[in-house]
Simulated assay, not measured.
Amino acid sequence: MPNRSEERVVTPRLLRGWPLPNPEGGKTERGTVLVAGGARCTPGAVLLAGVAALRAGAGRLQLVVAEESAVALSVAVPEAKVVGLGPDGAPSDDILAMAAEADVIALGPGLDDIDSTIRLMRAVLGAAGRDTAVVLDAYALGALSKDPGLLPQRRAVLTPNLVEAGHLLGREPGDDLAAAAYELASRHDAVVSLYGHIATPDGECWREESGDTGLGTSGSGDVRAGIVAGLLGRGAEPAQAACWAAFAHAVSGQRLAPRYGRTGFLAREILDEVPSTIASV
């Protein structure tokens, strides 16, 4: 395993020296993002992740959720193509074709069953190209902890919380989250973003220090995963997308605090702050 570098703090100055791609042309130039998740009781997680991807600059959005939620979600997010899973949770041929053509696939938001998540991941990621960018969040990380072979793609970002990191590690992450992020990055050959600590498999590490307690609200992790996916869609590399997303997520929360207090804002309210936060850099 390569030596881990000292963490660099993610600041506007660092990000200005690492500018995001700004593709010209139509929406296809900014990438197609496919978000798959949304069990029957939690379709809103896919909504949050999908809209976050658009707010971060993705060009086209496709959403996959439980069949009974598909029509309602298509009305709630008219910018997206929305397709429902089959009655057994299996993806249709249409969904597999979408996966094969997507530039970015985000898996996990709103899923609630490990076995069905494993089946969905195996089918969708198996249909995708090996160089398709992938973001794994929530139950997709639990599935990965049971079967590391579920992720064949080379360009991947994992966005675990502390519980999910524990499942992936097989133990508690401990106090050194930078070390835990790097261990996971090395183990899964992916960029890992863990509570503001970002690590790559080759030992590069960063720390985002703007996050506050208000980000620990329901749906906030779905927003962060969606921002990563949107930045990947517009052409950012995985480490760049993870660092910019950690900053955009945290500072968007900071911008809401004067209106709602440190702990009073909602995850969906973070979404509208993301474009201006990114532009402010």
Rank of each mutant, 00 (worst) to 15 (best):
M1A: 13
M1K: 14
N3G: 14
S5D: 15
E6R: 13
E7H: 11
V9T: 15
V10I: 12
L15E: 01
L15Y: 06
R16L: 14
G17V: 11
L20R: 04
P21Y: 02
N22V: 15
R30W: 07
G31N: 01
G31H: 00
T32N: 10
V33N: 00
L34M: 11
L34I: 10
L34T: 08
G37Y: 07
T42R: 13
P43N: 02
V46C: 02
V46T: 06
A53M: 05
G59H: 05
L61A: 04
Q62F: 10
L63H: 07
L63V: 12
E67M: 12
E67T: 09
E67N: 11
S69Y: 01
A72R: 09
L73S: 10
S74N: 11
V75M: 13
V77Q: 09
K81Y: 13
V83L: 13
P87M: 14
P87N: 15
D88H: 12
G89E: 10
G89P: 04
A90M: 13
D94K: 14
I95N: 01
L96K: 07
M98H: 01
A102P: 00
L107P: 09
L107S: 08
G108T: 11
G108Y: 09
L111M: 12
L111F: 00
D112L: 09
D113C: 08
D115K: 13
D115W: 12
D115A: 15
I118T: 12
I118S: 02
L125D: 10
R130S: 15
R130K: 15
D131R: 14
A133F: 05
V134D: 02
L136P: 04
D137P: 09
Y139L: 12
A140Y: 06
A140D: 06
A140V: 09
L141W: 01
G142M: 12
S145A: 14
G149I: 00
L150T: 06
V157R: 03
T159S: 03
T159F: 07
V163R: 12
E164R: 02
A165Y: 07
H167E: 13
H167G: 14
L169P: 06
G170V: 01
P173C: 06
G174T: 10
L177K: 06
Y182M: 09
E183I: 11
E183D: 11
A185W: 08
S186M: 15
L194V: 08
Y195L: 15
H197L: 02
A199M: 02
A199S: 10
P201S: 11
G203Y: 04
G203D: 00
E204P: 04
C205H: 06
R207A: 11
E208R: 05
S210D: 10
S210P: 04
D212W: 14
D212I: 09
T217P: 03
T217Q: 07
G221P: 08
R224Y: 04
G230S: 03
L231Q: 07
L232Y: 06
G233T: 03
G233Q: 01
R234M: 03
A239D: 09
A241M: 03
A242Y: 04
W244C: 08
W244I: 09
A245Q: 04
A250R: 11
G253C: 02
Q254W: 02
L256M: 04
A257Y: 07
P258T: 08
P258A: 01
Y260F: 15
Y260W: 14
G261Q: 11
R262H: 14
A267Q: 00
R268E: 10
I270C: 00
I270P: 00
L271V: 10
E273L: 02
S276I: 01
S280G: 08
S280P: 05
